[in-house]
């Protein structure tokens, strides 16, 4: 095999790895102030969590930190991948600059506020 083919093979397997991710369970709630997004990512420490906003797409990725002793063999596994990934498209009424993110005990808590102008307000009707 030539070098070129080798590289192509490596790239293919890399993209396959990227495809194979765990899909974290989420809760999405909305109230008048904004959106609350809760994401279950057990095993992900703060430094392995990545949040990105690109063109109104919110991308959440995280790696499970290995916590396995040496010479341990897997006997039974329900969680068989070590990377979480999930993306959401955001609408323009959400203020992505003011997102508040907290990670606690494997749950990511994201608060995405609405722009002030997008919040509901009552319009007064004046009597002419």
């Amino acid at each position: 095999m030539t070098d070129k083919q080798d590289k192509a093979a490596v790239r293919r397997s890399e993209s396959a790895d990227e495809l194979q991710t765990l899909l974290p369970a989420v809760d999405v709630f909305e109230d008048k102030d904004g959106i609350l997004l809760l994401v279950d990512m057990p095993g992900v420490p703060k430094d392995k969590l990545e949040l990105r906003i690109d063109n109104d797409t919110l991308l959440i990725e995280g790696n499970i930190a290995p916590d396995t002793p040496e010479n341990m063999q897997a006997v039974y596994a329900e969680v068989r991948l070590s990377r979480y990934r999930r993306a959401f498209s955001l609408s323009s009424d959400l203020d992505t600059a003011r997102i508040d993110a907290q990670l606690r005990d494997g749950v990511l808590n994201l608060r995405i506020p609405k722009h002030a102008y997008a919040q509901p307000r009552k319009i007064e009707v004046k009597v002419a």
């Binding site: 279950d40 010479n71 969680v79 749950v107």
Partner: peptide
């Protein structure tokens, strides 16, 4: 099923991992 479980085995111990976030 919640929580998801992984079980591993080493010569000196049995390791059980329960993926139970937010508890």
């Amino acid at each position: 099923a919640f929580p998801a479980l992984n079980v591993g085995s080493s010569p000196s111990a049995i390791e059980i991992y329960a993926f139970a976030p937010g508890l």
